[in-house]
Design a protein around this nucleic acid. Structure first.
Lengths: 220, 220, 220, 220
DNA sequence: TATGAATGAGAATTCATTCAT
DNA sequence: TATGAATGAATTCTCATTCAT
């Protein structure tokens, strides 16, 4: 490579571009963490800049203001979870296994991405205003709903599932079972006087949730 | 009455107390609304004073500071829901009916007390710090858990319920099914492109939740 | 006086009120000077607080924001000049003397209140937006116009003045002759290479202006 | 042409210069508009770059900083008005006509170049600092003064004009009559409750100003 | 000559909280 | 018990300017 021979290499255009991209992504990640930890209202632009190890002014250079930044973080989070869902190959599994898999996935994703829960909370505290402004609302409709409908239909046909199950309701229920437990984990742990995030507690919760969902769906 | 003779009457002690109590409660209610609407971080002491139509300084007189006020609001909210739960006479009902009743109650309470959801969110965003400081954590352990355990036991004994159901897990699940749907209603409505709080949608959700819980618990 | 005997005198209500009033007036005066010196855009809230020797926050307590403060300053300035105009007893003078008197007054007022010129400039740079928002626009219509109309009419009747002189045009002209000279004094002094504010120059200007106005108005 | 053979053509020196000149002029025009609209304090370098459709950095390349840029704009404005004045062939006209012509010219120029008024205001708000630094102050002394002196002398000699009229004072007065009306047009329109820039109002003003100047200067 | 990225010093405004009565 | 006035420490956002290429 010629580049290694010259002293002051001029970065290729793509590389230079990537600088801007990198900064933007760094900011986005820092903001995600800050928003997750403190909520939209409690987040501090100063701290985001610090976390990103970038000049505060740069945040405003790339993202209009705090609200816009929050919206960008939110959209990124949705994109992330949708991408993760893509990896899920539920169609290859038997209906009951597919459902179990979905419960497990939801649980694991929330556990590994606690920021998602907080961001969702913040968004709803602000009446999902940021979502409405984002024309993308509908895009965010998880493809899982379709998939879930397919699974339920398959199960009903092969006689293992009961009929009349609304996929949207079920989807919300699956999410809700994990969400409430994890999002309010602090309060629940305090109230019940035990650590609800211990390995044992986590295993118990997962088992319980699978039991609930399958108990509901399985015929007989 | 002596009072009519003096120009600037000093109210009788009891009356002053009652005034004090009234002020305190007014502040508490105003604060609850404000915290519910904006979260702990977004709430403004000014607005609370405005809502209460009382001088801002008075808030500090009765409640140390914002944090303390939030804690007071939180405790009051727990007291309120516990009180509501007292009204529930589940012991008189057949196990399945009792469970259905509990699902309905939870759903209705959250619907009528949306502030409870937001307060819970705020509390957990702050890692339930306010709860831990409040020595009352354990007091807040709902008596419902015991009641629920009793119901499950009765059901198991009379053969209608499956065995091995953990009352705490079930309690959390019942709450979670309502909570997620209502707390994230804005996001969900945007994503699914329909109003999830319409009368019809509400009825459907309630039916679904009862089906899920009973489908899980009922033997056969 | 009883007050002098007690250690910690409680100020009479009026006096306490006056504290607020005094603060407000202090701020207003400080703001007037700052706006006059730097214009609306160049004025600094910090400096206004400093000039007033009051907490910056207090400015926002009494005046919404910078714009509102500017508007308040502007209104006060108009009130001041109108009040000064009230002192002018032009009706008692012969028409020509009354006109001369008006020219002299305008000149003297602008000289003594240079801030008025700058404020007027600032207001117009912002398209007099602050004036339009102030419902008072019409109130500010100087009573001088009526008075001027009367003088012109008297002069015409007694044969000393020409007819057909529009009072508004004349009013604007009288103001303009002083205004341009003083407002752009720096540029003019630089261009003409002499100090246009020296006592001699001032006298010459005043004489010239009287000559212009009377030369125009006087018949013959 | 050799140019077609090279990949990255280096423009011929003259061409580069012309580009440079063009850029500089574009910036100057953009800056003039921005300064005119917002004043020196309110002008934004960002907006100037935007208006010029050029990179902000380029402004600093050609013009040291904001102040220097303002000074350049100011000088250009003076050059422009002096150039326009050159076109005026007052010497060929009868003294009274020449004066009328001058009033008309001033009025028309201010009307067509509203930025000139604002720039003059800004310059004086800053005490004409930019002018003093510009060694050109004296150069800017309008040749009109000499011309005006000539006209007055001619008029005096032929008996139409009164004697003892100071050309500088008259020059300032002519400017002031137009300037005040136009510069404070917004305030005046608001105060008098009518549009002072309507075609009719403009005609009336012009007539009035000619009357004032000639009424003053004409003997009898 | 031209440009996108980056920055430090400020500027307006906000907010919880306290003073003084 | 109640209140209007006052404050200091943030906090968001802005702006002229410079870096690096």
């Amino acid at each position: 490579m010629t580049r290694s021979t010259t002293r002051e290499a001029t970065p290729a255009p793509e590389e230079r571009l990537r600088d801007a991209d990198r900064s933007q992504n760094t900011i986005l990640a820092a903001a995600r963490d800050e928003f997750a930890e403190y909520g939209l209202g409690g987040a501090r632009m100063d701290r985001i800049a610090e976390r990103a190890a970038l000049n505060k002014r740069l945040i405003y250079y790339y993202f209009e203001d705090k609200e816009t930044l929050f919206q960008a973080v939110l959209e990124q989070s949705y994109r992330d979870i949708r991408e993760a869902e893509q990896q899920l190959n539920l169609l290859e599994l038997a209906p009951a296994d597919a459902l179990r898999r979905l419960v497990e996935f939801t649980w694991a994703y929330y556990l590994e991405h606690p920021e998602f829960l907080t961001l969702l909370n913040s968004a709803n505290l602000h009446k999902a205003r940021h979502l409405q402004e984002s024309r993308k609302a509908r895009e965010l409709n998880s493809p899982l709903i379709e998939m879930l409908a397919g699974i339920l239909e398959r199960g009903r046909r092969d006689g293992t599932f009961r009929g009349g199950v609304d996929p949207m309701q079920l989807y919300i229920s699956i999410a809700g079972l994990s969400y409430f437990y994890l999002s309010n984990n602090h309060t629940l742990s305090a109230i019940f006087g035990r650590d609800l995030l211990s390995a044992k507690a986590r295993q118990e919760r997962l088992t319980h949730m699978c039991d609930v969902i399958l108990g509901y769906v399985l015929r007989n």
